[in-house]
Design a binder for these strands. Structure first.
Lengths: 162, 162
DNA sequence: GCAGAGTTACTCGGATAGTTCTTGTCCGAGTGTGTTCGG
DNA sequence: CCGAACACACTCGGACAAGAACTATCCGAGTAACTCTGC
């Protein structure tokens, strides 16, 4: 019961794309090589981001992925939802329906107190993730590590890999 | 990426145990029959609750499970942790270590901004769950459905099943 | 020299296996109860 | 009649499979650039 690895890869990759202001797109292979990740699998995650409208993809030579909108307009929750899907962490199975006195035709998801508590906790989690934009994270990183933007851009744009 | 079913089963079962003030323990089979759940699998979850000190188990005839402490002293988070384990939802794989300029010997879990955001969201989720006790849920249920305590107690204590 | 068709190489995109985790099941160790036998 | 030893039935506890989800990989569809040929 932990989030899939792809969430972390997607977040880091989006930040890196934000530092390559070159409009030329970066290929999945190159983005994967940055952290030594399996290229085909990262490609899969980037496809999910593209479907969610976070990235834009262009096929063919000189193709690749680029940000579809500014980091200011991308929340951490957007990325999490793009990778993990829209479902909540806790899904009420409506046990009350099977219990004594339960009505098989009734929908207990709104009346069950347990489902309510879990739903509120889920909401608090999402609220926290929705409150952080990738731009805010980028700014904090740049404040702490001023060399990161330049180094990242150089590494991704230069053909030579280290 | 959703919580395991056992969390829901455990929460409902703890509430039901709270309504059977009889000190005679309820067997896993009977508690499972209440919601028509697989008895052996629910037993597995109840074992986790017992290891966590939430329930107390007694083997042999007339044995079963009973609450080890009052509902006032059991938070929803306690149950979630007992079933799901102590790990956070997001585990930082420390991608920065593999990236250019990364130090293989350094621990990036505390310095990575992304890990920080995910950790704060995780904390908000846990804070919400820790703020709700099973007693509070029980009280709300009793206020809405006054017949539930009596019906639950009768069903679990009477040998005859409906 | 220039335009255009053909070829090539490169990228994403979805379909295809391998591995881990959750779900579900089974049988044995241990215990309290009821019974039986002896005093 | 009373007590103790015995056998029994019942429960938890952990070990053992089945299924689903995540992880990882491969190859084909499509595209842009490059090349070569003819004018």
């Amino acid at each position: 019961m932990k989030l899939s690895q792809g969430v972390e890869w997607a977040l880091h990759t989006c930040l890196n794309l934000g530092w390559t202001e070159v409009d030329g797109a970066a290929t999945a292979s190159r983005l994967a090589a940055f952290y030594d990740l399996p290229p085909a699998y990262l490609n899969k995650q980037l496809q999910s981001l593209a479907k969610a409208g976070i990235l834009a993809s262009t096929p063919g030579p000189r193709g690749g992925f680029r940000l579809a909108r500014r980091l200011e307009d991308i929340s951490v929750l957007d990325v999490v939802v793009a990778i993990e899907g829209r479902g909540e962490l806790f899904e009420c199975a409506q046990l009350l329906r099977e219990g004594p006195g339960g009505d098989p035709g009734k929908d207990y998801r709104d009346s069950c107190e347990i489902a309510g508590v879990m739903s509120r906790a889920d909401l608090a989690w999402r609220r926290e993730l929705a409150g952080e934009t990738l731009a805010a994270i980028r700014d904090r990183v740049e404040a702490t590590h001023p060399g990161t933007p330049g180094r990242t851009r150089d590494w991704l744009t230069n053909v030579r890999r280290d």
